[in-house]
Amino acid sequence: MNNVTVYTTNTCPYCTMVKNFLDDKNISYKEVNVEKSPEKMMEIMQKTGQMGVPQTEVNGQWVVGFDPNSIMAAMR
C-alpha cells in the first residue's frame, strides 16, 4: 500500500492536476490544504526547501510540482 499525501492550496491549478492524475490511476491519497494549515507549509519547507505547491510525499519521497513520472517512480 502506497502512502501518498498531496499538499495543496485553494487556487493552485497544478494541485488539481495532481489530484486528478491520482484519481485517474485509482491511487488513494490524503490532501493537506496548507492555506487551512499554515504550520504544514512550514514543515514541508523544512523538509524540501521548496515553498511552492503542489508537493506530494510518496512513501517518504518528495515530488515537487505536477510530475506524474516521478510520482509513479516513487511508488515502485
Rank of each mutant, 00 (worst) to 15 (best):
C15K: 06
T56N: 12
N20V: 11
T48V: 07
K36V: 12
Y29H: 03
T16P: 08
E31P: 00
K36T: 13
G65T: 04
M1P: 12
M41S: 14
A73T: 13
M42S: 14
S70K: 15
T11I: 05
Q50H: 09
E57Y: 03
N69G: 13
K19V: 08
Q55L: 02
F66V: 10
T5P: 07
C12V: 06
S37V: 15
D67K: 14
F66T: 12
E57G: 01
V6C: 14
N26Y: 08
I27T: 10
I71G: 00
E31Q: 06
M75D: 01
D23G: 03
N10C: 09
S70G: 15
T11A: 14
G49W: 01
F66D: 12
G52L: 11
E57L: 09
T9R: 10
M17Q: 11
P13M: 07
T5G: 07
M75S: 04
I71Q: 02
M51Y: 08
C12I: 03
N2P: 08
N33V: 05
G52I: 12
R76W: 02
F21S: 05
E35T: 11
E39M: 11
C15P: 03
Y7H: 11
N10I: 10
K40L: 08
S70E: 15
M45T: 12
M51D: 08
D23I: 12
S37D: 15
M41L: 15
Y29C: 05
M1Y: 08
M72K: 11
T9K: 10
K25P: 02
F66Y: 15
M41Q: 14
V64L: 13
E43H: 06
F66C: 12
R76H: 10
Y29L: 06
K25Y: 00
K36R: 14
E31V: 03
N20A: 11
K47V: 05
D23E: 11
N26D: 14
K36A: 15
S28W: 02
T8K: 02
V58M: 01
T16W: 14
K19S: 01
A73W: 01
Q46I: 03
S28D: 15
I44W: 04
N69Y: 10
A74N: 03
M51N: 05
T8F: 01
F21I: 04
F66I: 13
V34G: 03
M42R: 15
D67P: 04
M1N: 13
M41W: 08
E43Q: 09
K19P: 00
K47G: 08
N33R: 06
V53F: 08
V6G: 10
N33L: 02
V6Q: 13
D23W: 01
Q50C: 09
N2V: 10
M17N: 06
V32H: 02
S37T: 14
K40H: 12
P38F: 03
Q46H: 13
M51C: 03
G49K: 11
I44P: 06
N33H: 07
V32L: 06
R76Q: 15
M72A: 09
N69T: 09
F21C: 06
V18S: 00
N10W: 06
D23V: 13
A74Y: 01
S37H: 15
Y14C: 04
